[in-house]
């Protein structure tokens, strides 16, 4: 099957031919299959943001190609908007983009730009609001009256309402309280499960990525460092640490136990670790 998103030797350089020339992304070639949930991690300035903005045609690669369902998105530059509807993008602190009089109208902005029928626009906006857990009574309020977490939800709903094949979220949980983060993350996961579309989640939280992602893309100094199944990637704890990234604490503990000879496997979540450790403790925990 053709991958939903594919990049070939993707490169981007800021300020070409100026003293401020900077290579932000170099030779990234990845294949993302339909239905994947991908975590994107990397140090600040590693090129994550530039990379994801190329995936929905917000910036045009200096060289290389982005293929959406096998078709080069820049084949017809005039139709780039159609690509942006299919690859939805939620920026960091997306609440800064709200502008309409009511929450509902703001969520409708995307679908309206798609020139759908009025019924469909309404339907999609309400569905999207439900997905992110916005109660109906908020929909007629001004987005500026809402709390930070609610605004964030409205902004994410605004992108989900376009029903994109690929949803890219750049640090969707940044600046939220722990409870808000967990709720939002599980909403994204359930959205992914129900719609069966592809999700890319950029995050600084290794715990979050480990918990939800099937595969992880690691960016380092404008290059792609790794792109593999989550467990594989987090098994390379030394390599990740050398590029300034952490593995989840629980993964680290389990790796340490393993290196000391206990019969345990790489773990990504606390639940997995508990499942492995409890029988060991009951047995008395002999080293192998």
């Amino acid at each position: 099957m053709t991958p939903i998103l594919e990049t070939q030797e993707l490169c981007y350089t800021y300020g070409v031919e100026t003293p401020f020339e900077k290579k932000a992304v170099q030779n990234v070639s990845i294949k993302i299959e339909q239905g994947d949930f991908i975590g994107v991690i990397g140090h600040t300035g590693s090129g994550k943001s530039t990379l994801i903005q190329m995936l929905n045609g917000l910036i045009r690669p200096t060289s290389g190609k982005v293929l959406l369902a096998g078709k080069d998105i820049w084949e017809e530059p005039k139709k780039i908007r159609a690509v942006r509807f299919r690859v939805g993008m939620v920026f960091q602190y997306p609440e800064d983009q709200l502008f309409e009089e009511t929450v509902l109208k703001d969520i409708q902005f995307g679908p309206r730009n798609m020139k759908l029928t009025e019924n469909e626009i309404e339907q999609r906006a309400r569905d999207a609001a439900k997905f992110v857990g916005l109660p109906d009574e908020l929909l007629d309020k001004s987005p500026f009256e809402l709390s930070g977490g609610e605004k964030r939800r409205v902004a994410i709903a605004g992108v989900i309402a376009m029903d994109p094949d690929v949803l890219i979220l750049d640090e969707p949980t940044a600046g939220l309280d722990p409870a808000g983060r967990d709720v939002l993350l599980s909403e994204i996961v359930s959205y992914h499960k129900i719609r069966g579309n592809t999700v890319l989640l950029v995050s600084h939280s290794m715990e979050d990525v480990a918990r939800v992602a099937d595969r992880v893309l690691v960016m380092n100094a404008s290059h792609m460092q790794m792109f593999d199944h989550t467990a594989e990637v987090f098994a390379h704890d030394k390599e990740l640490e050398s590029i300034g990234l952490q593995v989840p604490q629980v993964t680290k503990i389990m790796a340490e136990l393993k290196s000391r000879g206990y019969p345990v496997e790489t773990c990504l979540t606390v639940e997995q670790a508990v499942a492995q450790l409890l029988p060991l403790i009951k047995k008395g925990g002999d080293r192998v």
Partner: peptide, 12 residues
Amino acid sequence: KIMAAQKARGAD
């Protein structure tokens, strides 16, 4: 930043 965000929602 805001322009990019609105373009991502299909603003023309």
